[in-house]
Design a protein around this nucleic acid. Structure first.
Lengths: 357, 357
DNA sequence: ATTATTTGCGAAAACGTTTTCGTGTTAACA
DNA sequence: TGTTAACACGAAAACGTTTTCGCAAATAAT
């Protein structure tokens, strides 16, 4: 087991100074042809690679992006990560992942852990608990420390930073419009509680689409699921709620659900009640994941393009990082320079499958 | 925008030396009560936190684990990550993620990128291309550099390191046995190509279970899918292959598939052919993911316990890291000490759902 | 032959820590 | 009074880089 070789060792071995080695390896013309050759050959032979940590310390930047998300076992979030990793890697960055597990404290702990030099910037999506508490001081604190943040999906106006969101509102409008066009007259909405902004926006889109078509939204046709407890493990509760909902509203012929799971479960319940899809009830979900694609019947969904979101977020962040660096080179450092943050909206797209006519 | 405060700044401000500050903050009794108070108050006020990078450089360890997996948009892998992150965090480690995308070169590049000081050890699952090439020099190289590796799921005998695997063989045996008990007489296997070890092992388990029950495995009942091309995006091809398979083998009354997707697709095709599940055909899949849980009918599966795998892998790695550290403190450093690596097998479990009687 | 200019290299600082080893001051002791 | 011990703190090295600056020798110009 031989430790990685360092400049110092090369220098000692070749009887030159550390600086000479460093310069020779970067092809500085301060160093003679001959010496450079010798050093490079030696370095190659021992497969010298500069130590990243030392570089980070010297350069005061790590070339690493911190990702902070509520949950990783989640198709949407993992596609976002994939997108981030893709462009991060392409642009010479690494990616370090923290999970908040939807917890406020874990979010803070993770941020502080990474903000002490480990990363150059954050890409994150806010945890549910934080959204509930509406306490965003930790975000602003890190930004004030000079660490840029890019938020995606679950974002919030109280924090000044770049944001990448999906057009939840228009996505819903499109989906419900589609159901109307396909002949649905009584369209139900299955959504989450309001504090998750995406739930709220999607609900608004639903109402908007109805109104656009001169339909008055019937409050009875809106089912709000309390997902504060992990719904994945309370499938039966979910099914039961939806079943009751269907039974009390026998006239439903279209369902728009704000996520895959609700949509698929709705289909399951509908069939259990003897209804067939899409003949009796048509269904559209939000978020295009594995479930939508492989359900039977496969589900028409509003695609969020998670990977694209990740790519854009990474680009925004890295752009800011290189800008900050360039600015350091300039010697005008005007703190109150108005930096206008970007809010990037990723268009949704309806993917039609078998659950609609 | 105020930069994070450093020891040096505290020292200057309070007119003491850097060493004094450092000692005071670690409650060294070398420093007087009074000075300690003063320094700690000041540090707290400016919310001083030691710079991680500087610590890493000094201690020659980063308290960071590198995860290297083929793909992140994959239920199994993300549960593993969740498990790793869980115990890593609990034990004071961070997690940095690299994706090989099933590519040999990307795997190497990622490894080298992280092996230069960024991480203390690796947890990884080998990419398909690497398995095909059977070229494992990069793994051995990093191990030789003193960076421990723990492999999971897709492991290989040629590399000496700790491993965490699921009992693929026994899992399959159990599954097929279950089908036999449930009355299936002609059990088909839908599997992958052999070079992915898990595919091979699961196939062997299938055969073993049949033989245990005095059934001769019929080669015609084994369908091997070439998933070298991304099957997610060639669903139609997959469906078509399975459909042909069913048509040429009309007597099939049980299916064991080595992953969720194959299983769900098989169910879909079966129903398309007018067969009902589980009455006409019973199906069991491997890997318990979202699809299995939410398919209709829901799928009986062999659960891999991804999170547990991740947890065990992280524990194994961190155990080794602390052991290595302790060893550094001792001054016997015997290089050829026989270190026996652990191969941990996680038991599978059959989760019965609606696709079996 | 003297001065000016390259050329080739090394010393040292810096990034932010921790830790070892002094060292000066004060208090205790003979 | 002189010696010792305890106390409180600082200087400096080390982790592995890069980069600025200085300096000698070699070459070029006068």
């Amino acid at each position: 087991m031989k430790r990685k070789i360092t400049l110092k060792q090369i220098a000692r071995e070749l009887d030159v100074s550390i600086s000479t080695v460093s310069k020779a390896l970067s092809n500085s013309k301060e160093i003679s042809e001959e010496t450079t050759q010798k050093i490079q050959a030696f370095a190659k032979f021992y497969s010298y690679k500069p130590n990243n940590i030392a570089l980070s310390l010297k350069n005061r930047k790590t070339k690493t992006i911190g990702i902070l998300i509520p949950e990783i076992v989640h198709h949407f979030f993992s596609t976002v990560i994939r997108g981030i990793e893709l462009v991060a890697n392409r642009r010479g960055y690494n990616v370090i992942v923290g999970l908040s597990n939807e917890s406020f404290t874990k979010e803070i702990i993770n941020m502080e852990m990474l903000a002490n030099g480990s990363i150059d910037g954050f890409i994150l999506s806010i945890s549910k608990e934080t959204l509930l508490k509406q306490d965003y001081h930790h975000f602003n604190a890190t930004i004030n420390q000079g660490i840029p943040i890019v938020m995606f999906d679950r974002v919030v106006n109280e924090v000044d930073c770049d944001k990448v969101i999906v057009d939840d509102f228009m996505g819903s409008v499109k989906a419900v419009k589609k159901l109307i066009e396909k002949g649905c007259n009584n369209i139900a909405l299955i959504t989450t509680m309001d504090y998750v902004s995406v739930g709220r926006l999607r609900t608004q889109g639903y109402i908007e689409a109805l109104e656009n078509n001169k339909i008055i939204a019937d409050p009875n046709l809106i089912l709000k699921i309390d997902d504060s407890l992990d719904v994945e493990n309370h499938l039966d509760v979910l099914e039961h709620e939806i079943e009751q909902f269907f039974k009390t509203n026998g006239n439903i012929d279209g369902v728009f659900a704000v996520n895959e799971l609700y949509a698929v479960t709705a289909m399951k319940v509908a069939r259990k009640l003897g209804l067939s899809i899409p003949e009796d009830i048509q269904v559209i979900g939000f978020t295009d994941g594995v479930l939508s694609k492989h359900a039977t019947p496969s589900l028409t969904t509003v695609s969020q393009h998670g990977q694209k979101i990740g790519e854009q977020a990474a680009n925004l962040l890295i752009d800011r990082l290189v800008a900050a660096e360039a600015e350091n080179d300039q010697y005008f450092t005007n703190d109150d320079r108005k930096s206008d943050f970007i809010k990037m909206v990723i268009e949704t797209e309806i993917i039609e499958r078998e659950s609609t006519k």
